[in-house]
Write a protein that binds this DNA or RNA. Structure first.
Lengths: 343, 343
DNA sequence: AACGACGCATGAAACGATTCAGGAGGGCTC
DNA sequence: GAGCCCTCCTGAATCGTTTCATGCGTCGTT
């Protein structure tokens, strides 16, 4: 019942504790014959290392945690997969924690992770204000890497995508297509990503000296349902005031808009063009494939994981870095139809 | 730097080790004044429990693992969320591991989890043959609960949804709508769910004594791309031989089919009706909202977690159970148009 | 023959928490 | 005031691993 321990293995193989440990950790320092005896003992006893003891001795664990806002959001699942690759290749283990956009849950998770002395934490924090909990982790020597939150602080690394540029790309595209009345859908504006994407869109209009009308419709969150709701409001406008294009803060909203418009007989893109953000898998698979601003999601995860491992290994000599990726516009059918210039 | 330990706390508060431990674990056995002194020492020293030491002593950890086939699949993310609720409510922690449908990765994960002496494992195994790795875990006293794999073995609990019934529901619906040529899309058939759903569909045809023609098109996996590919093959058939309805083994395939058909000018549901499976969020949000067989995904996760905790606590007195949920057909536009009876 | 070097193996000493048998002191009963 | 119970606290023993100073041969060099 009680799993065999290293001592029993030693006794069974007729060697000392230290030798078994050496077989496990530095096999080449043990004579082949002895090594084999030990290995045999291990298999016949069904010995399995006890990680708690290992960690206790080592003072730190071999697991890395990632705390995401929503495990069910395709954006984050892809980030997780990217991080996973790097972490597992390094022989460590990635545990995924879900804050569900809830600060209290986030804090509970971080406390548990601290008790576990995890090797490091990748996190997209719920709040983007000052973060005493994170600072505490860092003081304790647990590296923290911010994921997808631009302005990293001085005591930690960060990876992010240039959301202002993303907004600019989307808007430039819509302006190129000849649109003049354009709506930006997203919210709440307290979310940095939502605000930045809008700022980029506005900057694009301004830089061109365009007379285009860009207005914002704030949604309560970033879900499909919010998109449907926003579309209803657009449809309530008289046709001549209705935007001919909408730029959505993420693809879930865009999909909601698409669905509602199609259901009401408004055609995409001929009546209304749509551009989303994130380029999740379901964007290209929508019945009217969705134009979207692609973020290198798995790269984001990979880069974050690499920074973390680097910091964990190099220790004090580490210099914090802030990696920023460039987004990329993917034009698909939902916005691919130049509009005859008219007002 | 090195985090304070319980000994320093004891010294700082002028008490013994045991007292500090009591404050932490049995606060009411310590006199209020002493307790407060200890708590003060804890905060001033910034003491954080060391979970490794705790676990080593206790012999087991307070974390539960869930091993899923694909973290990015909306079906599994919802199962995870369900399990999470129960596990966290019990003061434990859920770690999510991704096997990516790869048996080797699954095994590596299980080995690591065993080293960590996790409290239990929820798993949707990659293979449904005999599972020596899982048996080994169980022998070691680590409870295992199968998720979404019907035929649980005698030494473990399981939760599942009746896939045969689900297939039957879908097919009954399509037959009711007057369809006579129907295709089942899914694969590989070695996946129990894929086979069971087909079995249900076939049984429905037979039980009615229907003359309907149900044929299977096997896909290589269960993704959107596979659905698109399958749709292309359907379109290669002459119209008079082409199925008027397709039943897909999951929603990702169904979305792929929908996209490809729409892109080729085939209308859904009037030319071809579609029914999917899982009822993921994007099913209802598709441009032609998708009929689908709904599985109680979060309940699945919750039930699995509850069985696990129960087993972990009751120990030997535990009797393994196999919970089976009923699926439910959700009819949406993609199949909601009775067909004039004709052959 | 003496010496160092080297290869292997040893086992005691950590790591930090929990547990538990036991002790100190105070108050109560008879 | 003896005996007893209670409350509160103590500290050694324990969990299983890793590490490291040490020991013991053997071999090659001088």
């Amino acid at each position: 019942m009680a799993t065999a321990n290293i001592k029993e293995v030693a006794r069974h193989a007729g060697v000392s504790l230290g030798t078994v440990s050496n077989v496990l950790n530095r096999p080449d320092t043990v004579a082949p014959a002895t090594r084999q005896r030990v290995l045999d003992a291990i298999t016949t006893l069904g010995y399995v290392r006890n990680d708690s003891a290992r960690q206790l001795r080592a003072g730190r664990s071999r697991t890395v945690a990632i705390v995401v806002l929503d495990v069910a959001n395709p954006f984050f699942t892809d980030v997780v997969r990217g991080a996973e690759q790097v972490i597992e290749a390094a022989g460590a283990m990635l545990v995924v924690c879900n804050s569900g956009e809830d600060g209290a849950r986030e804090r509970r998770h971080l406390e548990l992770l601290e008790e576990q002395r995890v090797r490091g934490v990748l996190i997209t924090p719920v709040d983007h204000g000052p973060q005493p909990v994170l600072d505490k982790l860092i003081e304790r020597g647990i590296p923290v890497v911010l994921v997808d939150r631009g302005t990293g602080r001085a005591n930690r690394c960060s990876v992010a995508v240039d959301d202002v540029l993303g907004g600019r790309l989307a808007m430039d595209h819509l302006l190129d297509q000849g649109h003049h009345r354009i709506a930006y859908l997203g919210g709440p504006l307290t979310i940095a990503q939502v605000a930045d994407r809008h700022a980029g869109a506005a900057a694009a209009v301004q830089d061109r000296g365009s007379t285009a009308d860009l207005r914002v419709a704030v949604t309560t969150n970033l879900t499909v349902a919010a998109g449907r709701h926003a579309a209803e409001e657009l449809l309530a406008l008289p046709v001549r005031k209705r935007p001919t294009a909408v730029f959505c803060a993420n693809d879930l909203i865009a999909l909601g808009v698409l669905q509602e418009l199609t259901a009401r007989g408004v055609r995409v893109p001929s009546d209304v063009a749509i551009v989303g953000y994130d380029d999740i898998e379901f964007a290209g698979a929508a019945a009217v494939p969705l134009s979207s601003v692609r973020q290198p999601r798995d790269q984001l995860g990979r880069a974050a994981a690499e920074l973390l491992l680097e910091e964990a290994e190099s220790g004090d000599t580490h210099r914090h870095r802030h990696v920023v990726f460039q987004p990329e516009l993917v034009v698909r059918r939902s916005s691919d139809q130049p509009r005859r210039t008219r007002r």
